[in-house]
Design a protein around this nucleic acid. Structure first.
Lengths: 99, 99
DNA sequence: CCAAGATTTCGATGACGGTCGAATTGCTGG
DNA sequence: CCAGCAATTCGACCGTCATCGAAATCTTGG
């Protein structure tokens, strides 16, 4: 496993972020994280295989939306909500508020 | 030219809207519209061919973001900002505010 | 009605993206 | 140190999408 890369929020573009959120599965993951505050990967409730979920988590991470922390043999995933709010004020929060 | 279809905002999903905005060209068009309030098609400043622009305008229209009105031999394009704000409060407005 | 201009549609193309299963890597408890 | 679980990577597949140029469509002025 190569080292996890977390982009600086200042380097994330708006299209990159919107693209990451424009997928049902990824949006669902982000919502689940927002509600839980921090969730272990295998616990996400998504209708795709483990490898596909892994792919989506990577897209979210590279878009600056997630922080991933190895924690034992698991990984902790957290929403970088506060950081994204400073980068794109109101965008992520309003999306999370929308149905 | 078949009749233009404008979806009811209530039928637009969040991923559909975000996907429409997750493209550099389309986001640029939306920004230009927001600034001008109403722009004739041929006047958009985008780095693509006319046929490609037409495609993007269609995507935006079908995502409920644009209202297109034939006006003589031109077409008037307007942002459906107020309607999208009632559907997804804060989303479009915060995106337009972001850099 | 016809010519000209504006825009869309069509057809093709190449790139990208979501998906899966299998193989791989990483970590830990025994 | 090894068995087992967690998660990623790999390779393949297929559908979607951005793009273009050419042809078609629509609208109006003359």
């Amino acid at each position: 496993m190569r080292a996890l890369h977390h982009p600086d929020v200042s380097s994330v573009t708006l299209p990159t972020m919107l693209n990451a959120l424009a997928d049902e599965v990824r949006l669902s993951v982000v919502r689940q994280l927002a509600e839980a505050g921090g969730v272990v990967c295998g616990q996400f409730d998504v209708p795709v295989s483990m490898s596909t979920l892994s792919h989506h988590l990577k897209v979210l991470r590279e878009a600056g939306l997630l922080r991933v922390t190895p924690e034992g043999s698991f990984r902790r995933h957290e929403l970088r909500l506060a950081e994204m709010e400073t980068r794109f004020p109101g965008v992520l929060s309003s999306i999370l508020r929308s149905a």
